[in-house]
């Protein structure tokens, strides 16, 4: 791990020198003043899962649809590979970690949370099935998670979960501030009321707008991510991520779940004020790892094809 870290620093160093001497960019006054550590261009890699449903191991070889596919252990290998390739990786989950294999029935979610902690998840939100052993059952295994659960519209203050989840979370990567919050689905009619107890369900659109604004304006986040367990879309007017985009602003990316929707890549929709918001979802049962890369530029002007023009080529690492 340490070795890798050194390699990455070295790569960046080599990159800076090469850029300087090649004259691609002239050394700015910032560099002279010793502030050169601030990169002009920063790439942020968001990796995400949803509805893993206790799929620790791959599906059985005799499974009709997904034989030998999926599994958290395999996702971990891919995440590790990407962490070795990219400098700024954030790993998130959009809920329904629990329920679906006997691992959950026998161990109550302990294994899932231990593995996600080991994988260095940065945050998750709660899906409806995360209530399947009741709030008490969730609380009993929560200590296995070293990452926060973000629940912005579930009010747990009258329950034993009071103070154990967060409304939002801010991560900083190379000076980029990423604000994250979580929107849960209506529990009434979906989850047995005895399981969610005195949880209060707050309006998802109102809550989303409130926390997105707080993160973008008060906390000056460069990127705002909503972890949503509302579902991608429905035939009827039921609230979905697609509708959430239209009713909100200040959200850059919605990482969705619940509908087990497989997407090839994130889809762009336009929010209340006409700005683009990405919506992504990664199927279910650890069958897919979602990925969105964001590029930030310290200058104001828009640079269009950052990916090809500024991504350090793999060759640099060999120096």
């Amino acid at each position: 791990m340490t070795e890798e870290f050194t390699m990455q620093n070295r790569r960046k160093f080599v990159k800076n020198i090469l850029i300087g001497t090649a004259g691609i960019t002239t050394l700015s006054s910032f560099d002279i003043l010793g502030i050169a550590r601030k990169e002009k261009h920063i790439k942020l890699t968001i990796l995400h899962t949803n509805d893993m449903h206790s799929r620790i191991d791959a599906f059985a070889p005799n499974h009709k649809k997904h034989a030998n596919q999926g599994g958290i252990s395999r996702i971990a290998s891919l995440v590790e590979k990407i962490r070795n390739e990219e400098d700024n990786v954030i790993l998130l989950d959009a809920g329904d970690i629990f329920q679906g294999t006997p691992y959950f029935n026998l161990f109550g979610g302990e294994v899932e949370l231990k593995l996600m902690s080991q994988m260095k998840y940065d945050a998750s939100t709660m899906g409806n099935h995360d209530f399947d052993n009741g709030i008490e059952g969730f609380n009993n295994v929560l200590h296995n998670a070293n990452f926060p659960f973000l629940c912005s519209n579930y009010d747990f203050s009258e329950t034993i979960l009071n103070g154990k989840t967060k409304s939002y979370h801010i991560i900083e990567k190379q000076g980029i501030k990423i604000g994250i919050f979580g929107i849960g689905i209506e529990l009434d009619g979906l989850v047995d009321s005895r399981l969610y107890g005195k949880t209060i369900y707050n309006d998802p659109i109102e809550s989303a707008n409130k926390y997105a604004q707080l993160l973008k304006e008060k906390h000056a986040c460069n990127l705002v991510i909503c972890l949503s367990h509302l579902g991608y879309e429905y035939e009827h007017k039921t609230l979905s991520d697609k509708i959430l985009v239209k009713e909100t602003k200040n959200i850059d990316l919605i990482i969705g779940g619940h509908t087990h929707t497989f997407l090839d890549k994130a889809v762009t929709f336009y929010n209340k004020v006409g700005k683009p918001t990405l919506v992504n979802q990664a199927g279910w049962a650890a069958l897919s790892l979602g990925r969105v890369d964001f590029y930030f530029n310290r200058e104001k002007e828009r640079i269009d094809d950052l990916n090809t023009s500024f991504r350090p080529s793999k060759n640099y690492a060999k120096f």
């Binding site: 891919l78 497989f262 979602g290 590029y295 200058e299």
Partner: peptide, 15 residues
């Protein structure tokens, strides 16, 4: 604080 989001790229991975 002037980092501006300029571009994004996405592709999900099959497990």
């Amino acid at each position: 604080e002037q980092y501006k989001l300029t571009n994004s790229k996405s592709g999900n991975n099959e497990i």
